[in-house]
C-alpha cells in the first residue's frame, strides 16, 4: 500500500511538473465553459420552460457546466498515453516493478488536481456572471471532492479507451463521439424529471449525472441534490475502481 502510494505520487508529481511548465492546454479547455455560461446560460435564463425549482437557470446550469468542463478535458487526457507509447515512455514505465494500477492511479491523481484548477476557473467565471455561489467551507469541500473524483473517473475512462484503440486518429474520433452523448444524457443542463424515460434510464448509469448532482447541491445557494451525497460518491468511487482495474489490465498492451 505504501509502495502503491509512492508510485502513484511519483507519476502524479511528474504530471504536475509538466502542467506547471505548460498550462496552456488546461486554460484553453476552460474557455468552453465560459461560452456555455456566458452565452447559452444567459439566453436560456430568459426562458421559463425548464423546471429548476426556485433557482434561476444560470444558477441551475453553473454546476452542470463545471461538470461538463471536467468531462471535456478529462476525456482527452488519454491521448497523452498514445503519445507516450509512440515515444517509448510507456515501455520505460512498464519495465519498472511499479504496480500497473499505480501507473494509472498516478495519472488519475494528476487529472484530479488538474480538475481542481479548472474548477477554480469556472467558479471565477460564475462569480463574474453573478451566479449565486455558496461560499461555505463544507459545501466547497464537497464540490472539490466531487471534481477530484469525477476527473479521476473520466480521465481513467479516457486512458482505457486510449489503451484499446492505440492510435491518435481513432482516439480523437471516439473522444468526439462520446462527449456529447455523455453530456446530454445527464442532468447537466436540464433536470432528470424532464427527460423521456429511455433517456432517464441511460442518465442514471452515467457517472456525470452523479457529479452534477453533487455539485448542484454544493456549489450554488438554494441548489438541491436529487440523490444522497453518499450515493453519488459511492457510484463515482465504484466506477473509478472498475475503470482502474480494467485499465491496469489493458494499459500494458500498449507496449506490445
Amino acid at each position: 500500500m505504501l509502495r502503491f502510494a509512492r508510485e502513484s505520487l511519483a507519476i502524479a508529481s511528474a504530471e504536475m511538473h509538466k502542467l506547471v511548465r505548460d498550462p496552456t492546454e488546461m486554460f484553453s479547455r476552460a474557455i468552453q465553459p465560459v461560452l456555455w455560461l456566458a452565452i447559452f446560460g444567459q439566453v436560456f435564463s430568459r426562458v421559463r420552460g425548464i423546471p429548476t425549482g426556485n433557482l434561476n437557470y444560470l444558477d441551475y446550469m453553473a454546476p452542470g457546466i463545471l461538470a461538463q468542463s471536467i468531462l471535456f478535458s478529462a476525456i482527452f487526457y488519454g491521448i497523452a498515453v498514445i503519445w507516450e507509447r509512440d515515444l517509448g515512455i510507456v515501455h520505460k514505465l512498464l519495465v519498472t516493478p511499479a504496480h500497473r494500477s499505480a501507473l494509472i492511479g498516478g495519472k488519475a491523481l494528476a487529472a484530479g488536481l488538474r480538475g481542481l484548477v479548472q474548477a477554480i476557473v469556472v467558479y471565477g467565471v460564475a462569480v463574474i456572471l453573478k451566479v449565486n455561489i455558496r461560499w461555505e467551507f463544507l459545501p466547497i469541500l464537497t464540490a472539490a471532492a466531487g471534481v477530484f473524483i469525477g476527473s479521476g473517473v473520466f480521465s481513467t475512462f479516457s486512458l482505457l479507451i486510449a489503451s484499446i484503440v492505440k492510435t491518435r486518429e481513432r482516439f480523437m474520433g471516439i473522444g468526439q463521439v462520446l462527449t456529447m452523448p455523455l453530456f446530454f444524457a445527464s442532468n447537466a443542463i436540464y433536470p432528470l424529471e424532464l427527460m423521456p424515460d429511455w433517456l432517464k434510464s441511460i442518465a442514471i448509469f452515467n457517472p456525470l449525472t452523479y457529479l452534477v448532482d453533487v455539485l448542484r447541491g454544493s456549489m450554488i445557494v438554494g441548489g438541491v441534490s436529487t440523490f444522497p451525497v453518499i450515493t453519488s460518491f459511492g457510484v463515482m468511487g465504484l466506477v473509478f475502481l472498475i475503470l482502474l482495474a480494467l485499465a491496469s489490465k489493458i494499459y500494458p498492451g500498449l507496449a506490445r
Binding site: R3, R6, E7, A10, S13, A14, L93, T96, A98
Partner: peptide
C-alpha cells in the same frame, strides 16, 4: 531520474 528512481522503489 526522480520518476524512474521512485518507480524502482
Amino acid at each position: 531520474l526522480n520518476l524512474s528512481a521512485r518507480l524502482y522503489g
